[in-house]
Design a protein around this nucleic acid. Structure first.
Lengths: 151, 151
DNA sequence: ATAAAGTCTGTAGCGGCTACAGACTCAACA
DNA sequence: TGTTGAGTCTGTAGCCGCTACAGACTTTAT
C-alpha cells in the first residue's frame, strides 16, 4: 500500500510557492499544471508533485521563459529520457533574447542618462529633454530611433 | 494670410514616422495625438504639427516611457514655460526603472549562461537545465528566486 | 467609368496575469 | 449543533500597447 497522500488546498500551495491563487488557476487553464483532484465540495487538492511542478514553472518564469517556452520545457522534462539537447536549444535561444533586451535597455539607459544630465546642468531656455524628443520632427522613420536621439 | 496648410492622410503620416496606421489611431484614442481635421469623406487630415508630435511620442516610446509617461511629458511640453524640473524627474524615475530591468536581466543572463554551459558540457544522467528548474521543489517562496537557482 | 488602393468604425485578440462578484465549502469554536 | 469567518469556486472583465481583422466607405489613377 502507498504512503498516505498529503493533500492541501490551493491557498497552501500559494503560500508555499509565493504564487498567487489566481495565477495558479491561470497556469492550470494554460496547461502548465495538471488538473488536480477535488474535494467533495469541489476544492482543488494538491500534493508534493504539484508543488514541485509549480516551483519549476515559477523558476522558469523568473528566468524570463514565456508560458509557451515553459510548456515546452515541461514537455521535455516529462516525456524524454535525454531532453538535454532540446532544452539547451530553448535556453540558448532565450539567452539570445535576454542579451538583446539587455543591449536595448543599455542603449536606452545611455541616452536617458545623458539627457537627464544635460537637463540637470542646463540653464537652457528650453528643456533639453523635451527638445531632444522634439528634435527633427519630420525626419522620417529613421529619425525615431534611439540612436538618432542621442547627440 | 497664413501659408497654405499641408495636409496628408494617415498612410502618409504612417510612412513618414514608421508608425502603424492602427497605432496612430490608437494614440489618438489614448489622447497622445490631437483629433485631426477630416476630409469631406471622413479621412483624417494631418499637418506638420501632428508629424512632430507623433515623432515625439515615438521617440519617447523608443526610450521605454509608458503611454502614461508620454502623456505627462507632452503635457509638460505643451503647458509649461519651464518644464525642465518635472521632465527631469520623470526621466530620472524612468531611468531607475530601466536600470533595475537591466540588473534583473543581467542576473537572468548569468544564470542562463551558466546553466546552458553545464548542459553543453555535461554527460550528466539528467539534464542540468531541467534539474536546476526542478531543484528544491518544496523549498518555499524563497526557493523560487533566480538567485537560488544559480549554484 | 471603373478598378485599385486607401481609409473608416468597431470589435476582438495577444501575453500574463489580476481583480472582482456572487455562490459555495470548510474548520474552529461555543 | 449551529454559527461564524476564512477560504474557495466559476465566470467574467480589466490592465498595457498594440495588432488584426470585417465590412463599408472614399479617394486616386487610368
Amino acid at each position: 500500500m502507498p504512503a498516505i497522500a498529503v493533500r492541501f488546498a490551493i491557498g497552501v500551495l500559494s503560500k508555499r510557492t509565493g504564487c498567487n491563487v489566481e495565477t495558479i488557476r491561470y497556469y492550470e487553464r494554460a496547461g502548465l499544471l495538471p488538473t488536480p483532484a477535488r474535494s467533495g465540495g469541489g476544492y482543488r487538492l494538491y500534493g508534493t508533485d504539484h508543488l514541485k511542478r509549480l516551483a519549476f514553472v515559477r523558476r522558469a518564469r523568473a528566468l524570463g521563459f514565456s508560458i509557451h517556452e515553459v510548456r515546452a520545457l515541461l514537455a521535455l522534462a516529462d516525456h524524454r529520457k535525454r531532453p538535454c539537447a532540446e532544452a539547451r536549444g530553448l535556453a540558448a535561444t532565450h539567452l539570445e533574447d535576454v542579451r538583446a533586451k539587455i543591449a536595448s535597455l543599455r542603449e536606452m539607459e545611455r541616452v536617458l542618462r545623458d539627457t537627464v544630465a544635460r537637463c540637470a546642468s542646463g540653464k537652457a531656455s528650453h528643456c533639453p529633454l523635451i527638445d531632444a524628443l522634439y528634435r527633427d520632427g519630420g525626419g522620417g522613420p529613421a529619425g525615431v530611433s534611439v540612436a538618432r536621439l542621442d547627440r
